[in-house]
Design a protein around this nucleic acid. Structure first.
Lengths: 346, 346
DNA sequence: TTGTATGCGTTATCAC
DNA sequence: GTGATAACGCATACAA
């Protein structure tokens, strides 16, 4: 009706659809909500007209009244970048299938979390928060998020009594590292390695400390001397430098168990390209994560796997279970690890 | 004050803050909006009380009335995974500084885009949409998004007349590939390469076709025979297989120019570990992107760079410019490329 | 099965 | 500078 009607095109509203379909505005709302009673043919008509008008329910308005934003916040640091990008990728796909959108937040690298950022995140009212970070404590996050129950990754020590009733409330993805690490050490031992070094991640990281403790215990039970710790920070560059230093100035080792795959790549490159050592003949290397690059021929890394699909499915289950039962005590899902044997041990 | 006040803790509202501060609800709103008139001391008081009560304005409610969701949607396919994860990372950080949150959507890999997904995205009312994808046309996206003007990456051919007035409306990040590719070919030529092959990406991708056309033109101007095309799809595995095939069954080449770094890694590994050829002595390799892994010692790749920070800044500028001027014609930002010389040509 | 009335939490408009 | 009031677009309770 105006001279140019496609300039700052505004979106269609439920009211417009209702008018066009000769129904009430509420009927339109019902047409878009599966579990409401509405005559099938009416629903069909409404949906058809909605499509013609390019109408989609406004999620902000819907969130305001229903309390569901259909937003899942993910907080990531930028350590482990490789593993996480794969996980975010898979998780986003899985969440899309369930009707959720991924809201991404990046923390600082110094293992502290900006309160300002938490406030912003809370403002968006996510239905759930997955904290890949280790820099924000459950208590802090719980204080900030009202409705959403955060999900944390735990690395329970084998045999440790589980304080199931977690306070403040948060849900857990338990990752059992024992099996994978034990298999790795057994393989190393079987190929004659005795002096095994541990390339660490950032010392503040629980992923790092738990991995180290498990390795120490596994080695002790197998009658091996405790691992020498080579300090890294999950990155390739730090691993490279630390390895050069350890083999030039320090004692070196028969094998290096790396906290993650990217670190293992740094170790391998330092050994081969800077120290003139062969992998696996002179030094054996094991990683952790099994990221996509691990099977690339330049590395062909033997590593402890963490199944990505299983992990994503477990996370999605946690989210759905929590949304179905907001008052439930701390929920848990558990995941195991296993060794993927390739060419860096032998 | 109650027996258990931290059970299903609901968030504080502006009303509660207003009551506690003895001001009107509107004053609370103003306190959180920079460019509104409010006595400084009053603002301070309100903000202090808000902090005590852990109050944050609800973005859904705010979006409903202000028309700004503070959400920036990013659509990514899963090709180029490495480059994109870096870009999403940097972009998310930059957007956070501007008060925006990143809403992530993943498309299918088959270069078609799900209408259902577009509808979901529109429902969230993003302030802007960045389409890294090539599978959804501006016309489609424009039809779906009401207010948001999508941003596309273009690869203008040098000297091509620019149809500045784009219809449907979308903003552009122009990436000039000529300089970087010309420098790469010059370097290859300087080291005696004459038969240069091109490892392609997915054929439907404009990034791929434009890169190939530019390469062809550069080589023609330099008096070189046209490049043989080795078909890849941006992935390591496809590059690996295609390279093995090309050198075993096909003619081989003096050098391979890869559409992206990950592809270049596949080429290098195939040459070294499967074909027994040396890089760069027997075959030279150039990549495109300069992702983080490119400087790793196993590859140490010579590649055409696309500055990440510049690119992110340009995207953020496009978003802010568009939001400040919703009715402006198609906006543009331009970026150049240059060669990063490392060890795979020589 | 359907429609009416009400409210979600905030900002914009308009008075004062 | 400040406060009342009306939107924003939708889902829910209730009545029909």
């Amino acid at each position: 009706m105006s001279d140019k009607d496609d300039a700052p095109r505004s979106r269609a509203t439920a009211e417009m659809v209702a008018a066009r379909a000769n129904v009430s505005r509420v009927a339109v709302s019902r047409a878009f909500n599966p579990h409401t009673s509405l005559k099938p043919e009416k629903r069909e008509l409404i949906l058809r007209i909605a499509k013609e008008l390019d109408y989609t329910p406004d999620r902000a308005a819907r969130a305001l009244v229903s309390g569901r934003s259909h937003l899942i916040a993910i907080i990531v640091p930028d350590v482990y970048a490789h593993w996480e990008s794969q996980e975010i990728d898979a998780l986003t796909t899985a969440l899309q299938h369930e009707g959720f959108a991924t809201l991404l937040f990046k923390t600082r690298t110094d293992y502290s979390m900006d309160e300002q950022l938490l406030a912003t995140m809370r403002g968006h009212n996510p239905d759930s928060v997955i904290a890949f970070v280790e820099n924000v404590k459950p208590s802090t996050l719980a204080r900030f998020m009202g409705r959403a129950v955060p999900i944390y990754v735990h690395y329970p020590a084998p045999g440790a009594t589980d304080d199931s009733v977690s306070n403040p409330l948060h849900d857990r993805l338990n990752v059992l590292q024992w099996d994978g690490i034990d298999q790795a050490v057994a393989l190393l031992q079987g190929y004659g390695a005795r002096r095994i070094a541990y390339l660490s991640g950032a010392p503040e990281s629980r992923a790092n400390t738990s991995r180290q403790h498990t390795l120490e215990e596994v080695m002790a039970r197998r009658g091996l001397p405790p691992p020498v710790v080579v300090k890294g920070d999950f990155s390739y560059d730090a691993a490279y430098r630390a390895t050069v230093n350890f083999f030039r100035v320090g004692d070196g080792a028969d094998a290096v168990f790396a906290v993650n795959d990217v670190g293992a790549f740094g170790v391998i490159d330092a050994l081969r390209h800077e120290l003139g050592l062969r992998v696996p003949e002179d030094v054996k290397v094991v990683g952790f994560d099994d990221i996509a690059q691990s099977h690339w021929k330049s590395y062909n890394l033997t590593t402890v796997k963490f199944d990505l699909d299983e992990r994503v499915n477990a996370l999605v289950r946690l989210i759905l279970r929590r949304l179905n039962n907001p008052a439930a005590p701390g929920l848990q899902e558990t995941l195991n690890t296993r060794l993927i044997v390739r060419g860096t041990v032998g």
